[in-house]
Amino acid sequence: MQNVDLNLLVALDALLAERSVTGAARRLGLSVSAMSRTLTRLRNATGDRLLLQAGRTLVLTPYAEQLSQQVPLLAREVRTVLRPADRSLSLDTLEQCFTIRAGEGFIDLLAGALTERVRQTAPRVQLRFVPKPDWDAGPLREGTIDLEIGIVQTSAPEIRTRRLFHDRYVGVCRIGHPILTETHVSIERYAQYGRVVASRTGYARTPVDAALESQGLTQQVPIVVPAYTNAMQIVAQTNLLAVIPHSCLGNRLTPDYAGANGLQSFELPMPLPAFHISAIWHPRLDNDPAHAWLRAEVLAVSQAAYP
């Protein structure tokens, strides 16, 4: 389309509406001579005279009459497409469903606070949380989810992230568990009790096993569950132990969540790397005002809970 000049479409729209070179020039803020040259270019482009002298006025050719039914709509559409994007956002009238992929820990401990915060400013917005079976970036790229919350474990180079809070792993057991008789749990005593493993993939081996084996120890894993919150429920009813993120114990918005569910935490006898929980999204939503607002709300709730 090297020879296409969309300015000619705007000029043609003015000429067809005014049926006058002088009137079209005035409408577009051009000189009459410039408008006359533009009419010549339009005649060359279309192969039609378009406007003909009839006494003291100009009349449309049959082809121009035909174009007069199409060009005004095309001109409006071109102006709409090529004007700066409207970035305004009216939260009180915003009707949108955001699909968020997050772990059960975030849903259980922060989704309620996030929902209440959203409802205060955007009552017609719906948050739809979906399961997080893996860390595949495909749903973000395809647009089936709008936002992911969790550990960044994708190699997709274009994905955007924003750190929400710092986290680390701790041990957890039921209140009154015999392991709590020690002030500091030794690795040998830790290995004496079975462990619930939370694994999205169902894979039972974790870095805890490698740390135990380095000391010549092993630990029974009688059950594998898909989520940390599942592990916490099982631990509360048994003498099994679990390794969970510290954030699952509770926060400033949901204090003593673990204690209210019959659980007590302890420091693990082996070092495990800390990590960060982040908001993750596709760059096509970078400048979307509604999505930017949602990201800000998620960040505000996260920082309020885990300052």
Rank of each mutant, 00 (worst) to 15 (best):
V221L: 02
Y228G: 13
T229C: 03
L263T: 09
S214V: 11
A258M: 04
I244Y: 12
T229G: 04
T229S: 11
L263H: 00
N230R: 13
A260G: 14
H246I: 02
A231W: 07
A236H: 04
A260M: 05
G250W: 05
N251Q: 11
T206A: 01
G250A: 08
A227W: 06
N230L: 00
A242F: 02
L263W: 08
P207L: 00
A211T: 03
L241C: 15
V243A: 03
Y257P: 07
V208A: 09
A258G: 08
E213K: 15
I223P: 00
G250F: 15
G259V: 02
A210M: 08
I244P: 09
C248G: 01
R252C: 03
L241T: 14
D209W: 11
Q237E: 07
I223C: 14
R252T: 09
P207E: 00
Y228C: 12
G262L: 02
G262E: 01
V225C: 10
A211P: 04
L240W: 09
A227R: 13
Q233H: 05
Y228E: 15
T218V: 06
L249D: 09
M232R: 08
R205S: 10
T218Y: 06
V208C: 06
A236W: 06
L217D: 03
M232V: 04
I234E: 15
A231G: 15
H246Q: 14
S214F: 06
G262S: 02
Q219A: 05
R252H: 14
